[in-house]
Design a protein around this nucleic acid. Sequence first.
DNA 1: GCGTATAAGCTGTCTAACAGATTTTCGGGA
DNA 2: TCCCGAAAATCTGTTAGACAGCTTATACGC
Lengths: 225, 225
Amino acid sequence: MNQVRLSDHAYAGIVEIINDQDLEVGARLPSEAALAERFGVSRAIVREALVRLASDGITEARRGAGSFVKSRPSQRLAAFMPATELPATLGSYEVRFVLEAEAARLAATRRSALEMAHVEEGMEMLRIALLSSEPAHAEDMELHRRIAEATGNPAFLIAFDALHADVDKIMRAGVDISRSRPPEVIATMLREHQQIVAAIRAQDSEGAALAMRWHLWEGRRRLMP
Amino acid sequence: MNQVRLSDHAYAGIVEIINDQDLEVGARLPSEAALAERFGVSRAIVREALVRLASDGITEARRGAGSFVKSRPSQRLAAFMPATELPATLGSYEVRFVLEAEAARLAATRRSALEMAHVEEGMEMLRIALLSSEPAHAEDMELHRRIAEATGNPAFLIAFDALHADVDKIMRAGVDISRSRPPEVIATMLREHQQIVAAIRAQDSEGAALAMRWHLWEGRRRLMP
DNA sequence: GCGTATAAGCTGTCTAACAGATTTTCGGGA
DNA sequence: TCCCGAAAATCTGTTAGACAGCTTATACGC
């Protein structure tokens, strides 16, 4: 079989550092030499791990300055949920993962000013609904729909609508959507959505896709802990 | 800005080698030392490039033996069509790319024996239809549908059906699906589908996803060169 | 207090080397 | 001739040390 390489440990170790020390986006990682000493390996091994982390969009190396955290969500996604092995849980989330992440990515690339305004408006509606502690499921869906719309590709809306019509049916039968949530959960949900919208606004396609994946991942976890 | 690193050249050079020399899946690449000499860089640089290629699923390193080609399609996909920048063409293909690639991936992971037989049967029907030079659009769709079914997740079927109902509508209006194709195109289409099915049979999730992406990419090109 | 020059730190890259795994080669025996 | 096993060649995984060039921090002079 494929033996474990040292750089695998280094990769996992660096992810662990970012998570445990709660390094935010833009924060600097320890230097390659420091990481090498900490893990008890050579600098070459740390470099290989960093190359893979950069390739995965988690870190970014700046020559002469250091390596920096590029996106928080992806670290945890990479650590707990490699894209190749989605856990078999709520089926619709598996589809939403790929469908809406791609929609966010394309929305970031192609959104017109009008579509952006449409998304921002949806965000504002969701914000108001969440902050007034109403059940904001409809506003949530509406924002997601507007993001799909911002791709400019009607095929996304077709798939989206078909899927969510079904999700609604399941949810109304099973999970209680309209249950009230503690304030910190509301704040988190708000922040997650804001990150997605901000990435689309900034035309950061990779960031938008990651933020969407992260949001859906957390959303699934909130539904089924 | 972000300067170009030598390993970028090495990465591109290795992809070029695989494409130009038409190395098949399983073929061995030149040794790290040989590649280093060819590109005029150190072995460390070649290693970084190989780590990234392996991370991208293109090559695979076997300790003591060498680096081997893991998937041909991805090389070309990586070279011509980075996942982050899908060209804005036929809208439905953008959705099919992510949706069906993920379906193929999950089908490879989870397919039961029954579902696998179902997929094989669909493949056989498509094979017969293609070889008798009939317009095999219906059989093509049926095979894709059975792959989505093999995920065991009904949500994929819901999105799939909604999408393809629409695609059919568009296609019947515009492109002539039933036009006859030259024999070499038929052989290619057959091979593409067989690769997908073979990967699912072998439970090679990454290979299945890549084969599906490759197939859709080529399919789109056949429709709109 | 502020600006600048120097120092320190960091990444990118190279060379040289060795352990351990794998493949190839080669010779001897049936 | 064919097969088997041992030795040799080859290759990856990994380490150490070194240096250029870029970036950030420090300290000094005004």
